[in-house]
């Protein structure tokens, strides 16, 4: 009791052992709570993530009934994807119809927009060698201006059949996918920007182009491998 009446600087020092014991005890309790929360929510989180991803893929490959996840590896090979993405590999999704036939491929690209990175998912149709649909995975563009890329009908019209043919040697795209100023679209590989939201429109074009340039040359020789559901 007398210790309480002492000035603070004269209070008896806590023994080192007590401090370590307390911290150890607290850490142990906290560790248990964290592990418990992680284990308890693991299945639900994984299911949520899968559903979100599948929803994005089905949006850009509407004809698909089921999907498979693949990796296009840096050496040109294609493999079933696991949890890890090795360096240089590109993750993509193959969509199959009811008969198990490949109807489209979905992949993700990202590029710097006005506010932050814009991540888009696009669907590639091997039959017409073109990009068919796009969906936005994440973005923080200005509401009312940049986020028009989701709703602007004229802009989405660009992705009805965006030319993504490869050169004859299958090393790169025959025509670079490029966003051009509003109203100056001339080729099927060009994206007509939204007036007033040019920076975001350009980011979409760059994101698709970057991924398509890297993925499609690896994908083209292996199309028969993933051509039907295994």
């Amino acid at each position: 009791m007398s210790a309480e009446h002492l000035p603070i600087d004269q209070a008896p020092a806590t023994p080192t052992g007590a401090m370590i014991r307390t911290l150890g005890l607290v850490s142990a309790i906290c560790g248990l709570i964290i592990v418990g929360a992680y284990q308890g929510t693991y299945d639900a989180v994984a299911a949520n993530k899968r559903i979100a991803m599948e929803r994005a893929v089905f949006k850009v490959v509407p004809a698909a009934k089921s999907i498979e996840e693949y990796l296009a590896k840096a050496d040109g090979g294609i493999a079933k994807a696991g949890a890890e993405t090795p360096a240089g590999a590109i993750r993509f999704f193959a969509g199959y119809d009811e008969a198990g036939k490949l109807v489209g491929v979905a992949a993700e690209g990202s590029a710097r927009g006005y506010a932050d990175i814009v991540r888009v998912m696009f669907g590639y149709d091997p039959a017409c060698q073109c990009v068919r649909n796009i969906g936005v995975v994440s973005m923080r563009e200005t509401p009312g201006i940049g986020d028009k890329i989701l709703v602007d009908r004229a802009f989405l019209e660009n992705f009805k059949e965006l030319d993504a043919r490869l050169t004859a040697d299958m090393k790169a795209l025959a025509n670079e996918i490029k966003t051009v100023k509003h109203g100056s679209k001339t080729g099927a590989w060009q994206i007509d920007a939204i007036a007033g939201a040019t920076i975001t429109s350009r980011a979409v074009g760059r994101a698709i182009n970057d991924t398509a340039q890297a993925l499609l040359p690896r994908l083209a020789p292996n199309l028969d491998k993933i051509g039907s559901k295994s």
């Binding site: 418990g36 929360a37 929510t41 989180v45």
Partner: peptide
């Protein structure tokens, strides 16, 4: 101690929200 305790519950909330809605 307080920071460790708070961080623990924040981590738990983080997982729970992911489990409820992404």
């Amino acid at each position: 101690t307080y920071i460790v305790i708070i961080a623990t519950f924040v981590t738990a909330v983080d997982y729970i929200i992911q489990a409820i809605s992404l």
